[in-house]
Amino acid sequence: MSEAKARKLASYSLNLCADYYQIHIEDEEFDDDFPDDWGNQLVTNKIAVAPGIVGVGTARNMTVPIQLDLLDRGSEDEFDSWDHVVEASLDVPSGKIAILGCTAYFPDATRISVKPGSYRVRIYSRGLAGLSKDGLEGDDYYHIVIWSQAYSPTSVLKRWSAS
């Protein structure tokens, strides 16, 4: 990564319903072909990946706050203020990224226009331990950062443990 500071190309503040404890970031033309281990990926690493889609594992099965930033490049960050940080690659041949809850009405999804190609998606999560006893209320917060980058394997940069 470059020493120059990454520049925001677009920024979105969203509140998305995380049905089944997940949010999807996908190529607009993703064909809904989920791998058999999708749920296990989400539980194990709070991220799931298949061609054309990245799933974000959330702490609540409710509406959650998300900040999404499209950057001109990746950035070197400190993870001290975050509970969990993961990243994965996402191919976007259509030139449009959609972000939505897994059961949301797809035509209403937020869309981001990008140059067709490969992107890196980094998900920062915090407040994971701050849920109410019934799991309906919480301080969980998700920051998703996307930038153009050639494919590289999925990575857990900081792992959160409930214990």
Rank of each mutant, 00 (worst) to 15 (best):
Met1Gln: 05
Ser2Cys: 11
Ser2Lys: 15
Ser2Val: 14
Lys5Ile: 04
Leu9Gln: 11
Ser13Ile: 14
Asn15Ala: 14
Asn15His: 14
Leu16Gln: 03
Cys17Glu: 09
Cys17Leu: 10
Tyr20Val: 01
Gln22Gly: 06
His24Thr: 01
Glu26Pro: 01
Asp27Gln: 10
Glu28His: 14
Glu29Ser: 12
Asp31Ile: 05
Pro35Glu: 08
Pro35Asp: 01
Trp38Asp: 02
Asn40Gln: 15
Asn40Trp: 01
Asn40Ser: 12
Val43Phe: 13
Thr44Tyr: 05
Asn45Lys: 14
Lys46Gln: 15
Lys46Val: 07
Pro51His: 10
Gly52Lys: 12
Gly52Val: 14
Gly52His: 12
Ile53Gly: 05
Gly55Leu: 02
Gly57Leu: 05
Arg60Met: 11
Asn61Leu: 08
Thr63Trp: 01
Val64Gln: 07
Gln67Ala: 10
Asp69Gln: 09
Asp72Val: 09
Arg73Tyr: 01
Arg73Met: 06
Ser75Glu: 15
Glu76Lys: 14
Glu78Phe: 08
Glu78His: 08
Phe79Val: 13
Asp80Phe: 11
Trp82Ser: 08
Asp83Met: 05
His84Gly: 02
His84Leu: 06
Val85Leu: 05
Val85Glu: 02
Val85Asn: 05
Val86Pro: 01
Glu87Leu: 05
Asp91Thr: 08
Asp91Pro: 00
Val92Glu: 02
Val92Gly: 04
Pro93Asp: 11
Gly101Cys: 08
Cys102Gly: 09
Cys102Ser: 13
Cys102Leu: 06
Ala104Val: 00
Tyr105Thr: 13
Ala109Thr: 07
Thr110Ile: 01
Thr110Gln: 04
Arg111Asp: 08
Ser113Asp: 15
Val114His: 12
Gly117Cys: 15
Ser118Val: 05
Tyr119Leu: 08
Tyr124Asn: 12
Ser125Tyr: 09
Gly127Phe: 07
Gly130Val: 11
Ser132Phe: 11
Gly135Ser: 11
Gly135Tyr: 12
Ile144His: 03
Ser148Leu: 15
Tyr151Ile: 01
Ser152Cys: 08
Pro153Lys: 13
Ser155Ile: 04
Ser155Tyr: 01
Ser155Asn: 10
Lys158Ile: 14
Arg159Trp: 06
Trp160Glu: 10
